[in-house]
Amino acid sequence: MITESAAPTTSQREPQDNQKSLRPSLFWRLGKPIPIRLDWALRTASVIVPLILWWALSSSGIVNPKFLPSPIDVMGAFGRLWAEGLFFDDLSASIFRVGSGFLLAAVLSIPLGISMGAFAAVRSLLEPIMGIVRYMPAPAFIPLLIIYLGLDEAPKIALIFIGVIFFNTLMIMDAVKFVPQHLLEATYTLGGSRRQTLMQVITPYVVPNIIDTFRINMAAAWNLVVVAELIAANEGLGKRIEIAQRFFRTDEIFAYLIILGVIGFLVDLSLRVLLKATCKWAVD
């Protein structure tokens, strides 16, 4: 009855003033991809536009170049640092610290996270304490770590380990909770034991989540290594930034910041590639 009475009014309307329909849009479609060329154009702009703004601001003379070096100055700083040969040492020192701290945390967080997700008993035992320790800012551990472990590599690696392990574990645990119950039950009816179900169903199911977890927490690891090196180190990217500050070399600070960003971006990218290569079933 309602539709009948509505029919005459709609037929009187002109097609173009149909204000009830959602208008098509290229930019603002919710949750839909955009054309690939537009995508790449926007991605390029995302990097180029800030570069141009930076360049324009630094060459306008508004800001003292001591504070804001131009892109050319920063390029020069790159060259200088490269020539000095320190660059490579610093880079490899930082990469070593992040790499070993993160690897340790990763190796431990996989079994921990999976068993916390799968067994309510393990979860009850570990979740409260992890929930508390997780909120203690990792950099606040630095003084303690220096007292316990000295000034060598150990405290830096330990810091990264502490800063990453809890987040890794809790995120993997959450992923395990989302393994469909039916998949586990199907496994039991195929004769699977609990152990087989854990190793051959739950674990492969969460591999994409594990890779994603690592990707996200890798950023935290890079933050922490710089913090650690700012406070106590002889080499490393953080240390170098601290020295540059002492000599007021903003161009070098910029160069190091850019390097940190690019490394992070490349690590992120390679983990994405790894995910695409190993987990075709889970992507797109």
Binding site: L183, E185, T189, G191, W281
Partner: peptide, 17 residues
């Protein structure tokens, strides 16, 4: 549960990987 009683669920439940 055991392999002597096979089960087929409504929502397929295949291993996606």
């Amino acid at each position: 549960p055991g392999a002597d009683r096979g089960m087929v669920f409504q929502d397929y439940t295949l291993y996606p990987w």
